[in-house]
Computed example of a mutant assay.
Amino acid sequence: MAVTKEKRRAPKPLDAEMLRQLGLNHVARYATTRGKLRSYLTRKLRERGWQGDDAPPVEAIVERMAALGYVDDRAFAETRAAGLARRGYGPRRIADALRMAGIDEADGQAAGEAAGAAAWDAALAFARRRRIGPFAADSPEPGPARDKALAALMRAGHTFEIARILVDSEPGEVPEAPN
């Protein structure tokens, strides 16, 4: 005898109050940006539909959450940039992450400048974590292993100059930051 699956009821289409409540629940649970909140509400509208003749007030809800301080793109950018820098990511990768999070140029500028100032420390953290250059067990030799380490640093968002200095350094000898 086969077990039949219960049919799920289609969720009720959203109205303005339900959409506002979804947005409020989302910002209460997650650190988010205006762009991410907008995407979340749009996705919910796509999934459940809209009940009403007028357009859904997505932009009004997003702006209201920002006005109340529930969504702060600048604080989000600074926190995300600092966390990525501690993990060893460079300014280019941090800028990409902020752009993907929906942070506009103005809100991400201070975080980008801080990431640029801490680029050497971030590169050292990445090299330490991946055992590259001064943190490697063996001296670097030209070949695939060196190229792989160089590529890893470049993918992490560091400049070629910083990556080359770290990859070419001897184990145990941490080089000074380039000017």
Rank of each mutant, 00 (worst) to 15 (best):
G90F: 01
A177T: 02
N179F: 13
Y70C: 08
I61D: 05
A136K: 02
E6D: 14
P13H: 05
A67I: 05
P175W: 00
E176C: 06
F126T: 09
D138R: 13
P91W: 02
G102E: 03
M65E: 15
A28T: 10
E176S: 09
L14Y: 00
N179V: 15
R128A: 15
K7T: 13
A119E: 11
R130F: 08
F135P: 08
A81P: 00
A163L: 04
F135G: 05
R92A: 15
D147Q: 14
D96W: 11
V27H: 00
V71C: 00
A66D: 07
A118C: 05
L37W: 01
A66C: 04
L37H: 01
D96C: 08
A125H: 08
A31I: 04
L166E: 01
D73K: 03
I94Q: 06
M1H: 12
R131P: 04
Y30Q: 12
E105F: 13
T4G: 14
L124N: 04
E59D: 15
R9I: 09
G83P: 02
A97N: 04
Y70I: 08
R74Q: 10
D15A: 11
D107P: 09
G90D: 02
F76L: 13
G108L: 03
A114M: 09
R146D: 07
S139W: 14
P11F: 05
P178I: 04
I165G: 05
M100D: 15
V3K: 11
I165F: 01
P140K: 07
E63T: 13
A119I: 03
A106N: 10
M1D: 15
A127G: 00
R99W: 07
A85K: 03
L153S: 06
L19W: 00
F76A: 12
N179C: 12
G133V: 00
G143I: 05
T4C: 11
D147L: 08
D73P: 01
P57I: 03
A110V: 07
R130A: 15
R92L: 11
G143M: 03
V3D: 10
A16E: 11
P11K: 11
